[in-house]
């Protein structure tokens, strides 16, 4: 975790002066703004913060932040970000990327990041398309659906990223919506503050290529329970009494119960879109696990470990190691 600024900076201090070239009306604007607000409210020093991004329209977030911004490779945002966080846990590291980036080409890394429980937030912009390559189906688009650029309806089934995250071992799993700024910002803050690997999946309209699930579509009320009852399509499960947080991680029954509920919620099918915190548990992070095995890591992050003296002579003493091999 980065240190906290004594005097918090304004949101503007987290904005770079790079021209933003997303299409007008793109949900990514909402997500970027919420990230910048969260950083400001958490008083993160920009120089101790690293935003790692995938490749896609979403990936450009890296360049619009005035922290360290790292545009990685398509699908590889998690290994890059994990590498940095493990090398220097004092930094605030977050990963962001598209749904194609994270759940498609990067699906292997997505799963294994869950197993490690590195203390960082991963924000995925789910727009059901590959925006930057002009609108092909992404892994979250349902079978039979045909967005604007598809010559034929989609032949693959959609994955359920939150259910996948649950199986993979993510210790904080939530969803939000790009244009619900308030909720989104709070969710980003929670994901960052959670000690462990957090997945925040953000529903993101792509007005250019996703003509099925547009901002208007998200805003539309749908039929609720009872006659003539209309309810907002997006509903916050935490407002309805759902609590996915495990209170006692050592209680297997509680863990199982919360996981099953979260799994059910993650697989929700229907007219509405649930958002909120689906699951949360406090488990040892990867750094803590490494520290248990490599005690020196408690004292120093790998990036800060001493290995040379003032005249640049190496200080690592290998004499004990050599002894094993000396005859």
């Amino acid at each position: 975790m980065a240190s906290k600024l004594q005097t918090p900076l304004t949101v503007a201090a987290y904005k770079s002066d790079v021209h933003n070239d997303w299409c007008p009306g793109c949900g990514d604007f909402g997500i970027l703004q919420a990230i910048q607000q969260s950083f400001a409210e958490l008083a993160l020093p920009p120089w101790e913060s690293m935003v790692f991004a995938g490749i896609g329209c979403s990936g450009k977030v890296f360049n619009y932040m005035a922290s360290h911004g790292v545009h990685t490779l398509h699908g590889r945002v998690l290994p890059f970000a994990v590498g940095a966080k493990l090398a220097n846990p004092n930094l605030e590291v977050i990963a962001v990327g598209g749904d194609g980036d994270g759940y498609g080409i990067g699906a292997g890394h997505f799963v294994h990041a869950g197993r490690r429980n590195v203390d960082m937030a991963y924000i995925v912009m789910t727009n059901e398309v590959y925006g930057l390559t002009k609108g092909q189906a992404s892994p979250t688009l349902g079978r039979g659906q045909q967005t604007k650029s598809l010559p034929l309806p989609n032949t693959n089934d959609a994955i359920q990223p939150l259910a996948l995250a649950l199986s993979a071992g993510y210790t904080w799993i939530g969803r939000s919506y790009a244009f619900d700024g308030k909720h989104l910002k709070e969710m980003i803050k929670k994901a960052i503050q959670h000690k462990g690997m957090a997945l925040l999946d953000v529903l993101q309209p792509c007005p250019t290529f996703n003509d099925l699930h547009t901002t208007e579509w998200f805003n539309k009320k749908v039929k609720g329970e009872g006659e003539n009852v209309m309810v907002p399509r997006i509903f916050n499960v935490n407002d309805q009494g759902y609590d996915g947080a495990v209170k006692d991680p050592t209680n297997a029954d509680e863990v199982n119960e919360k996981k099953s509920k979260a799994f059910e919620m993650a697989n929700y099918v229907g007219e509405r879109n649930p958002v909120g915190v689906f699951y949360e548990i406090n488990l040892p992070t990867y750094v803590e696990r490494m520290q248990a095995q490599v005690p020196m890591l408690k004292q120093y992050a790998p990036a800060l470990m001493p290995y040379q003296d003032a005249s640049h002579l190496p200080t690592t003493d290998l004499s004990k190691v050599y002894d094993e091999y000396l005859f």
């Binding site: 690293m50 790692f52 590889r76 290994p79 970000a81 940095a84 090398a87 220097n88 930094l91 790998p302």
Partner: peptide, 17 residues
């Protein structure tokens, strides 16, 4: 792929990776 990218991510923080 993860091995090289993780090492690169680590190297950006200054550690010899």
């Amino acid at each position: 792929i993860a091995a090289i990218d993780m090492a690169l991510g680590a190297a950006t923080t200054g550690v010899r990776a």
